[in-house]
Amino acid sequence: MIDHAKMMQHVESHPYPLLFATVSGAHLYGFPSPDSDFDLRGVHMLPLETVVGLDEGDQTVEKEGIYDGLEIDLVTHDAEKFFRLLLKRNGYVLEQIFSPLVVYSTPEHEELKSIAKNCITRHHAHHYLGFAATQWRLFAKESPPRVKPLLYVYRVLLTGINLMRTGEVEANLITLNEAAKLSYIDELVDRKRCGPEKEPFEAADLEFHTREYERLTAELEAAYEVSKLPEMPSARGELNDLLVRLRLRRSGSC
């Protein structure tokens, strides 16, 4: 459960108006630890006088705060920067837009959700393959290996496979595993949630997870090859129109 009131305290102290703020990180992925902080992500709007001048303004704003023991980390990008990221094969921004854990929203956030569906391409598979490879290297080099990067490996591979097959953005590992039916996921999630996160893996476990990583990587690569998703995003015009309207509205011109 998210404490909406405490989250909103942090959101309302942001220096710029927000388009939306949603929960990302372990809470979105379905495996928060008892002491996990809350990762909020979103989009802010810089003043028109900032974006038309020589000063580029705060393209990214990072804010941390603690409210009655609840640690919150909020990172937002200006709408232009965020929209440009959407037009690339960036799975992070898609997950932020479609996160069901909404702290703050606007009608334009709902419009952005509709537009973002036309930003999804088969090449988002490369984002998830790259992220999984990075997390696997992190898992493999640690001594002893921790369960957190391993869960990230499985989360991103299953997210990528699901995206290639359905065109739907789903970042929650528990939900993804309802279809994947990987018997070991529940045990790993319990290990992360309940405390024995740093308990060492046995050699046989490491061999097993190595095989699973290789198998699911191959499965994502195969899903990419046969995916019916488009090659390129088709939403540039819609994103440009939304950005112009947002800028003009901030200036009082419409």
Rank of each mutant, 00 (worst) to 15 (best):
E12L: 04
K117W: 01
D205L: 02
V147K: 08
I97G: 05
F208K: 12
L18S: 08
P100N: 09
L112M: 06
L151G: 06
T175D: 03
H124Q: 14
K198A: 15
D186K: 13
S36D: 00
H209C: 03
A132E: 03
G252W: 04
G195A: 09
N177S: 05
S36V: 02
L243E: 11
V147N: 11
R137Y: 12
R211F: 07
F38H: 09
Y16S: 01
R245P: 04
R193C: 06
V93C: 04
R146Y: 03
A235Y: 10
R250A: 14
A133K: 14
Y152E: 05
A180N: 10
V226L: 08
E71H: 11
E108L: 03
L54R: 08
L112W: 05
V11W: 12
G30E: 10
P200Y: 15
N240R: 15
E168P: 01
F208H: 13
F208P: 00
H4I: 14
I120P: 02
E49V: 08
S24V: 01
V52Q: 11
G25A: 01
P15D: 08
H27V: 01
L242I: 02
A179E: 15
E231A: 14
R193P: 00
P107C: 06
Y154K: 03
D35V: 03
E71A: 05
I2S: 13
L94G: 04
A79M: 13
Y152P: 00
T76K: 11
G195S: 10
L246E: 13
Y184R: 12
V11L: 07
E221R: 15
M45A: 09
A204I: 00
E219C: 05
F98Y: 15
M45F: 13
L85P: 05
L94N: 02
L129M: 10
A180M: 12
I174R: 15
D73K: 11
E187L: 11
S234G: 13
V189R: 04
V147D: 06
E170H: 03
D73W: 08
M164V: 02
V61A: 08
P230H: 11
S13Y: 01
A223F: 13
L18K: 07
E142F: 06
H4E: 15
L101M: 11
L157I: 02
L248G: 10
Y184N: 07
I174K: 13
A26V: 08
A116G: 03
E62W: 10
D78F: 12
V103L: 05
T175P: 06
D39M: 02
H126V: 02
A26Q: 04
